[in-house]
Every structure is written in structure tokens, then in C-alpha cells.
Design a protein around this nucleic acid. Structure first.
Lengths: 355, 355
DNA sequence: CGACGCTGAGACAACGTTGACTCGACGGGA
DNA sequence: TCCCGTCGAGTCAACGTTGTCTCAGCGTCG
């Protein structure tokens, strides 16, 4: 296990402009000008300063620089997601990172795990580090604590879920319409008994998707039945249990609409464990990796995560560039991807149902 | 699309200690003491300062604070991964985030996309922001550019891949042994013609896994055959193509060892497209979500990502806490997970092979 | 009763950098 | 030839905070 020598016998501290200036025989300010590529410096001096900087391994201190600079910008933004290891959050933050990269901006990422207290803590921690702006997939239902920060000039953009008690730019998927599309798709395949399985109803996206579900049923003249509706949390286990219970009902659903990717995966597992994956139709909200490779492939309402992230990041940077227009709420359309599971047609009433 | 009113008519700047001090009628230093919870302040004054701070929405400026403080710590670390949207990278950075969280440290994440130039740029960008330390999954093969940074006191820990031309703490999976286990598993099922499909051989993990592959063959007295070895990049497309070509050979392999998760997924797709998923045995290196739910389930050599990330983060923080012991290289064992695809036994020479 | 220690708060400088200003040298036009 | 504008480099202070020192007030003890 042991490898090398002590990493650094004397961890001498980082060289500063002062030292570079001394070595190059110029004033600190001249070093500053060279570092910032101010064009009015004699090329010979530029060369001398560069040489001295390289020799010392000088790296500018952006922390000090942003403190002194007029705009106080740190070229860093914060991103708060539900869980950076979850594919949706990961794809979202990666997109934001890509947009930020184009501008030399780095991203501080924090995971909230659906904990409103953690949201506040992390938002504060980011603000204390003076990030230029924040992209937030909120966990909480009260964002008034951000009002003063917003007023102090921190730009905020909400993605995937809307802010509450706060006026801020927002980018959402068209959750309601997506759910309507999903349910209509199942109705078209002849299903009349379509279960809803989703995240906790306090989460705004879940609520919107549920609303779409109910709306589509209503338009389709299907009576709403509480018994086949489950607002489980976003955990595979609870989704599995809920699915098992639904299908064990005396009058079980012939189709499932699952409104979140973890829930969808739980349902997929449960259906396979019961051997019902080719019997019970299933459409999930949110695409997920390998959904196409299962048999049957899982039909989903795919969110355009790339578009969500890119739009949010671009809105943020537009604000940072001085855009003072009224806040906007942008809706990104979703798309039905047919892969098989959603195209299973309704059976004649099952034996169980006819008992 | 349009929503609210202008977000902030006058984006007045953030309150400072000076303003809090003025409002509370005390000296700036006293505010500092209250903020830092120095116990020698009169409770009445503490209350007055707190009130003033709340009223103004004061938030300390960690940027300024870390500049002035003796240790210059920013309570921020950097994490460079291959692609934060890839499940392996995402899980790794999430683990690091969790460890950091316990200490109130935030994580700046950057994706390298296997680009050594980007590695250098991002490492520099992080250092310029004076992160306390760096956890790196390197893309490049020369890390000497970090020597001076290391000497200047920036702590570095490498994960998943080792540093080159630099002595630094390292946490690796036991890649060679994992590959040996995979190949042995296939040998045990009777396979004698086992293809290797992996990432570019310049990547150290890929090289180690390839080495394990060769070693296991040698020990098993199987002659190495260049024809069934492909060092494709880590893209699904190239893995699909490579798999197709391998199986179209006059003497095709009866088993596949894929040495990286994206490559594994590509191979899985290709096998299914060819209808060979129940015929050709397959073990992949790296677990991936839903590997268990496919049919057959994909047998894998699972890395203990949690352990990798946690160990790396803990090593980093130990250094930050002043550990000056020699650098260490820790190896994390891997684990074979049997799910079906790796347990397919060798067939009698296929018709094609006997032509 | 006076010197002394202690406690709690303020004054001041400094962290590394940059904005605003200054100053010397040089060149061109009157 | 002289003055003024220009250009390039330097001086100084300040960003928001904290380490160090100072100092006033008070209680205590010989």
C-alpha cells in the first residue's frame, strides 16, 4: 500500500504578484496588467513578467481578484439538484456545466435529497461563497428566504420545479401535457382502468403530472378511482410494493402510468417479478438509460433534459449579462417514445376481475 | 410565457459587516466576532448584532474571509471526472460530495471528456479559485504540471486512474484482478475463445484490465489471439460496431469480456440486435443500472464506487488536516456479480466456425 | 488604597488583487 | 524651441474580512 516519499517537506505557500513583481523587477500593478492582458505594456516587460511568473509557478488568486473587482464576479455558479447521482439530475447538471464552460464559469453542485432544510443550507453556503448565480431544482415549498438574496443581486433560475413565494425565472417540462399524452396513449390502446403511481403529491411536478392524469381520464369519460392511485415517494422499494398491491387488487388495473423515473423502474421490476410485463401496459414519465433494451421496451414520456438545462443556464447568463426584463416561465415540451410497454392492448376483463 | 414584474428595480449590493456594525452601533470587529461565534462577546451585544444582521439580510463573504484568514481555506474542493453524467462518475462525485458535506465543504465538479488539455485547464481553473484540494480522475498521461501546485500546498488525490510523472495519493479498483476474475469465470464455463473489448489502451485502467485478460488466458493455457481483441473508445457506437465485426469473424468468440461500462452496454445492444444474447457469454467490467433486469441479466465485475469515492475523499481530508505521511496507493477490491450472461456455457463449435 | 490582572470592545493593518490617479518621458505641432 | 498630449509604468487606496494589539473599565488582593 505504501508508495512514495513525503509529499512535500516544506509546503511553502503560493507565490503572489508581489513576488513575481520583485523577481521581474517591476511594480505589482504591472504584473496585474500582464496577467489581465492589458495591451499597453511593453512587450519586453510582458516577456520578463511571464518568465518570472512561470519560474515561480504563479497562479492568480481569483478569490482576491473577485473581491477587489467592481462587479465582484467569481465566475462560479451554483447548481442544486435532487441527487447528482440520479440520471436526470446528472444530465441536467452536465448540460449546465457545458453552457457554463463556454464562458469560463465553473459549477458548484449540491444534492438536496428532497430535504428543504438542506436546500436552504446549501443555497446559503453557495451565496456565502458569492456564486454569480444559482440554478435550482428545489426541494422545498417556500423560497421566500431567497428574496433578499435576489434583491442583493444573486440571479436565480428554477428548473424542473417552480419556485414558491418567490418570483424567479423558471424552466419546466410540460408535465401536465406529458401526463395527458401518456394517459391518452393508454386509452387509445383500449385501457379503461389505468393506475397512477407517482412521487409525493407535494412535489410540484408530481402534482402537475397527476393533474394531467386526472384531466385525461375526465376527457376520456373514465371515472376516477382513488383505489388505483398511489403517491409513493421516489424510491424503488416503495414503487415495487405499491405496484404489487395494485396488481393484487380484486379489480386490478390493466395499465400503469408511473410519473417519475425511479418509480417507473420500481414498477418495471415489480411487473417482471410478477411475470406481467407483457400483460399490463405501462408508460413512464422520464426516460432512463436502457429503457429501450428491456423487453418489452418501456414506453416513456421523455423530458428534453438537454433543453431544460441549456435553457436554464442561458437564462441565468442572460441575467448575469444585465438582462432586467420581467421574469419568465419557459415550458419545454415532452415527447412520447413508444417502445412496446405502452402499446400492450387492453385484455378482455381478466378472470380475476370477473370473479 | 411572460410571468412577473421586473425582478429587481435596484439591485443594491450585498450588505457588509460595516453596515451591520453601523446599524448595531458597534465596531466591525465585534460583528466579526459575533459571526464567528467568539464567546467573549456580551450576550446583549450579540443579540443586537444578530438582529441588525437579520434585518439587513447580511451573509458573510467567505471569499474575503478566506483571503484574510491564516490558512486561506475556502471550504471548497474540486473534483474532476470523466463525464459527470455517466453513472460511474456521477456516483463517484456524489460520494465525495457526501463526505465533504460532513465537513461543510462544497464541491466544484468538472467533466474532462477524456481530454488532457481540458484536464489541465480545469485543474488550473480550480486552483485559481483556491480550492483546498482536488480529487481527480485524470484524462491525461502527464501530471507533472501539478508538481508546483502540490508543492504550494494544494492536496491532490487521484481516483480510478493513477497519476503519471507525479507522486500523489491514489485510490484504484483492483482492475487487473477483476479482469482475471472475469476471464476465469468464462473459462470455468468452458469458453476457450474469449474476446476482449475495451477502452483505448492508453487509459491506465483499460491497460490494467487488458493485462488481467492476457494473464488469465496465459494461466489458462489459452493462446492469445489479436484478432478477437479490440481497443475501441468508450462510445456505444464503436462498441456496437466492434462487437458486430467480432461475431462476424469466421471463427467468432463464444464469450465476450468488455472492460468498461459504456463498451459493455454497446456489446449488450449488439448481441441483442444479433439475437445472440443467450448464445454468447458476456461479462462486463463496471456495474450499471438495470443490468440485473435484462434477460439474461448481465454478469459484471462491480467496482465498489462508494468505497472508491469515500476513500479518496477521506484521504484528501486527512491531508488537509495536516497528514504529512508518505503518499499511499490504496486498492479497492472488485466483486463478480453473476446474473446469467456470464454463466452461458460454451457451445460445441458453432456451424459458422466449422465452415 | 493603589497596583494589577482580566475582560470585553475597538483601532489598525494586512490578505492578494485592481481601479483611479499620478508622473516622467517622449514626440509633434505651432 | 516650447508646450501639451500621449503613452507606459508606478503609487495609493480599497474590496470585506480577521489577526494582533491596544485600551478602558472593573474587580481583587496585598
Amino acid at each position: 500500500m505504501t508508495q512514495g516519499e513525503p509529499p512535500s517537506p516544506s509546503p511553502r505557500s503560493r507565490p503572489t504578484m508581489r513576488e513575481v513583481a520583485a523577481l521581474a523587477g517591476v511594480a505589482i500593478k504591472t504584473v496585474s496588467r500582464v496577467v489581465n492582458e492589458v495591451p499597453t505594456v511593453d512587450p519586453a516587460i510582458v516577456a520578463r513578467v511571464r518568465e518570472a511568473a512561470d519560474k515561480l509557478g504563479y497562479r492568480p488568486n481569483l478569490t482576491a481578484s473577485s473581491l477587489r473587482r467592481g462587479d465582484g464576479r467569481t465566475a462560479t455558479i451554483g447548481m442544486l439538484v435532487e441527487d447528482s447521482a440520479n440520471p436526470f439530475s446528472a444530465a441536467l447538471s452536465r448540460t449546465v456545466e457545458n453552457v457554463a464552460r463556454e464562458r469560463g464559469v465553473l459549477v458548484l453542485v449540491g444534492s438536496l435529497d428532497e430535504d428543504p432544510a438542506r436546500e436552504r443550507e446549501l443555497a446559503r453556503a453557495l451565496i456565502d461563497r458569492r456564486v454569480d448565480g444559482l440554478v435550482i431544482v428545489p426541494a422545498g415549498r417556500d423560497h421566500s428566504y431567497l428574496i433578499s438574496e435576489q434583491r442583493s443581486g444573486t440571479c436565480l433560475v428554477f428548473v424542473d420545479r417552480e419556485p414558491s413565494l418567490l418570483d424567479a425565472d423558471t424552466v419546466l417540462s410540460d408535465n401536465r401535457q406529458g401526463a395527458v399524452t401518456a394517459v391518452n396513449h393508454l386509452l387509445k390502446a383500449g385501457h379503461r382502468r389505468i393506475a397512477y403511481l407517482g412521487d409525493r403529491a407535494t412535489i410540484s411536478t408530481a402534482a402537475q403530472r397527476f393533474d394531467g392524469y386526472r384531466h385525461a381520464l375526465e376527457v376520456g369519460h373514465i371515472e376516477y378511482d382513488d383505489e388505483i392511485v398511489r403517491h409513493t415517494g421516489a424510491s424503488e422499494e416503495s414503487a415495487i410494493t405499491a405496484t404489487e398491491r395494485l396488481l393484487a387488487l380484486p379489480n386490478p388495473p390493466t395499465a400503469l402510468f408511473t410519473s417519475q423515473n425511479v418509480v417507473t423502474i420500481g414498477a418495471v421490476r415489480a411487473l417482471r417479478a410478477l411475470g406481467l410485463q407483457d400483460t399490463v401496459a405501462h408508460v413512464g414519465f422520464d426516460d432512463f438509460p436502457l429503457a429501450d433494451i428491456l423487453s418489452p421496451g418501456i414506453s416513456v414520456i421523455a423530458q428534453d433534459v438537454e433543453q431544460l438545462g441549456r435553457t436554464a443556464a442561458e437564462m441565468l447568463f442572460r441575467r448575469l449579462d444585465g438582462d432586467r426584463s420581467p421574469t419568465r416561465a419557459v415550458t419545454i415540451p415532452t415527447r412520447l417514445i413508444e417502445r412496446g410497454s405502452g402499446e400492450i392492448t387492453a385484455l378482455a376483463p381478466s378472470p380475476r376481475a370477473s370473479i
